[in-house]
Structures are given as C-alpha cells and as structure tokens.
C-alpha cells in the first residue's frame, strides 16, 4: 500500500516538473527563432529608419536624466568609499585611476544596462504587450505592413545602438562626480585628474565596455520585444511581460558580464 502511494505521489510531482521542463525548452526554441527572425528582417528592406531614429530619441535622449543622476552619484560615492585603503598608505593619487578603471571596465556598462533594463526594457515589454492584446499588431499585419520589422527590429536596433552612447555618457558623468570629490579633498587639478584617470586605461578596456554595452542593449531589446510581442491574457499579460522583461534582462546581463570578464581577463 505504501509503495502504491509513493508511485502515485511520485507521478503527481513529476508531471508538473516534466511540463515545466518541456515548456522551458519550448520557450528557448521560440526565442532562438525570434532572434533568427530579427537578423533576417533587420537586413531585409524596407528599412524603418524614421522609426529607428524616433526610438533612439525615446530610449536614449529621454534616459539621459536618470543616467546623469545615477552616474554622477556613483562616481562620488565610489570615490568616497574607496578613499580609505589608499589613504592609509598615503596613496590617494591612485584614486583617479582606480575609479576610472572601475567605471570603464565594470560600473558604467553595468549601471547603464540595469537602468535601461528597468526603464527601457519594461517599456518595450508593456508597449508591445498592450499593442498585442488590443489587436494593434494584428491590425498592422492585415494592412500589409510587417509588424515585426516596424515594432521589433526598430526597437532592438535602437537600444543596441543607443546603449554604447549612454554607457560612454555614464562614464563621463561618473568621472565628473569622482573629480568633484577628489578635487574637494586633494585639490587635484582637472588636467592631472584626467591624466591619472586615463593613464591605466587600455584599448581593450574601452573596446570590451563598448562591446558589452552593445550586447546588453541587444539583450534588453530582445527580451522586452519577445515577451511583449507574445503577451497573452489581457492586461495581466501586459504587466507580466513588462515585469518579466526586466527580470530576464537583468539576469542575462549578469550572466553575460561574468562570461565577458573571464574572456577579457584571459586576453590581458
């Protein structure tokens, strides 16, 4: 009797697990198809240049405020918190290079990507999700327009192109924040600060950061678009798409960061 119960119990547990695993792989397959479709349509005319520029403005220019705020504060706080260890050895002159290395190699790409995942990724998920559940995407399709090209390709290209610019800008304002703090404490001149800050930066650092930003932008764009474009269950689905877009983007960004750091470090 005990054995029978175990078997029945075992089946009850296993069924949902099997279903979840199958669902996971089915999603992976759909995402892979979605990405292939993106590349196919991105290189097929007609090109929606006007829409790409409009999206760059919405995603890039309208994100400058929050990037300025977070970048600047990060620069100040990171410099302030990092001062004590070098100060113990009388080596505060190392601070500009320490901060710039941290900002360019890791902080600026990561902070920009996380802000973009929250602000832009959720926006893409919610916008496409609501267009889907209100039949606007179907309306585009039946009017002889390719909604994937107009909605997905334009958004993914826009965020992929915008992210390196936003990251560079975040670096700049972060360094300005850092300079403010260093100048206040050590009375270092701007020229000396810039000279020290960029003394240790290599081409590989800049290239890796720009590449990371492109990849993060692409990840956020694809995650938001995929989830929004396939949103179901009405307004609940829209909320779910926006929320999941942020969570999935952030998760993938951290995974990519770990992998890229390993590769770049092996190249140094």
């Amino acid at each position: 009797m005990e054995n029978t119960n175990d078997i029945i119990h075992g089946e009850e547990i296993n069924k949902p697990i099997t279903k979840s695993i199958l669902l996971f792989f089915s999603h992976l397959n759909e995402i892979q198809k979605f990405i292939f479709r993106f590349f196919r349509e991105a290189f097929t005319p007609p090109y929606e240049l006007k829409e790409i520029i409009r999206q760059c403005y919405t995603m890039g220019y309208l994100s400058l405020g929050i990037i300025t705020l977070t970048g600047f504060i990060t620069g100040i706080v990171f410099t302030k918190q990092s001062r004590q260890p070098p100060a113990d050895f009388g080596a505060t002159s190392w601070l500009p290079s320490l901060v710039s290395l941290a900002l360019i190699r890791a902080l600026a790409p990561l902070i920009t990507a996380l802000i973009a995942a929250g602000k832009i990724g959720s926006n893409i998920g919610a916008e496409l999700g609501s267009m889907n559940v209100t039949e606007q995407i179907e309306a585009m399709e039946v009017s002889g327009t390719n909604p994937f090209n107009f909605l997905v390709v334009s958004r993914v290209l826009a965020i992929t192109c915008t992210m390196p610019i936003l990251m560079t800008y975040a670096c700049f304002v972060g360094l300005m924040g850092s300079y403010l703090n260093i100048n206040h404490n050590e009375q270092t001149s701007f020229t000396t600060f810039i000279h020290d800050a960029f003394g240790k930066i290599t081409f590989l650092d800049i290239f890796a950061s720009l590449f990371k930003s492109l990849l993060y932008g692409f990840t956020i764009g694809i995650a938001g678009s995929y989830l929004g474009y396939n949103a179901k269950q009405g307004t609940v689905g829209v909320g779910k798409a926006a929320n999941t877009a942020v969570v999935v983007s952030m998760f993938l960004i951290f995974i990519e960061e770990i992998l890229i750091v390993q590769v770049v470090n092996s190249m140094r």
């Binding site: 209100t134 039949e135 606007q136 179907e138 309306a139 585009m140 039946v142």
Partner: peptide
Amino acid sequence: RMGFSFQSGALYD
C-alpha cells in the same frame, strides 16, 4: 485586397 475592421477599432495608441 482585404480590409479588417477590428472589434475595438485597434487604432495605434
């Protein structure tokens, strides 16, 4: 060659 009028209008917001 076909036109589709949706229940909600489906206008682009």
